[in-house]
Design a protein around this nucleic acid. Structure first.
Lengths: 132, 132
DNA sequence: TTAATTTTTGTTATAATATAACACTATGTA
DNA sequence: TACATAGTGTTATATTATAACAAAAATTAA
């Protein structure tokens, strides 16, 4: 059962930090936070992050080099991610829009490419930041 | 006329390198290439890249930290980019699909966010790499 | 239960990507 | 001319990420 994977100690520690944050965290800020738990080196964090991304527990926000927990409980959504990013306050939210994901899932180009994954990032201003 | 901008010397040199490549280039590989033209420091490259991205002459492939020329001659497409990326050979192509971009352009979430930009990256295997 | 294999760990060192700060130059514009 | 704006060149440094290696832990297979 790939999405009921047992996590190792380091993976749990890192996931825990990310899940407690509503916003994406950067690797070195995670490192800072987990030092008290005995994780000392960047590589220990990056290894955990890699694994967590792989199994779909977290996603990487590519344009920000930051990591956010996947709120989707079924959590096999490593392959199709959509985010909205406020360029003022940097608030990030994962978007689950059925119509949009159907559209993207079925997208086919004319180059014979076989897609297995996509990542979409919307940028703009959130409600709060518009009214400033 | 914002998209008929006059480029400076460094901007021209960097754009030239990127336009000559069919594939995305990384900043330090660009730096290596332009040393013979008198550009010596990373910052000179990054500044040119920033400007070129800003005016839509090039795009950044976020998941690869690399830069590719925008082939669209009208070139006001800084705001809506779609790429396909082969995960085996790293071949990258910009996708121009009217239906898809209309769909994305008109996307509205229920959070009151105002979008001004998006970036979509499709990952998979290109024709060549499937048949290996 | 041992041995073999795979995965994870801990560690040091280093690579790759990107920006800060500052003094100076060029260009535009009022 | 004076002023503002944008770009330059430079040094130093910050930030993000991986290589390489030895050891420990977990898994699997005989």
């Amino acid at each position: 059962m790939q999405n009921q994977q047992v996590l190792t100690k380091n993976q749990k520690i890192v996931l825990d930090i990310i899940e407690k944050s509503s916003q994406p965290l950067k690797a070195y800020s995670i490192l800072f936070d987990v030092k008290k738990k005995g994780i000392n080196a960047p590589l220990q964090v990056y290894r955990a992050l890699d694994k967590l991304v792989e199994i779909g527990k977290i996603h990487k926000i590519e344009s920000r080099n930051a990591f956010i927990a996947c709120k989707n409980s079924k959590c096999q959504i490593t392959k199709a991610t959509v985010f909205s990013i406020c360029e003022n306050c940097e608030d990030v939210k994962e978007i689950h829009d059925h119509k949009l994901s159907e559209h993207l899932k079925h997208y086919k180009d004319n180059k014979g490419m076989k897609y297995s994954k996509y990542n979409l990032e919307f940028f703009g201003l959130c409600k709060k930041c518009i009214n400033k």
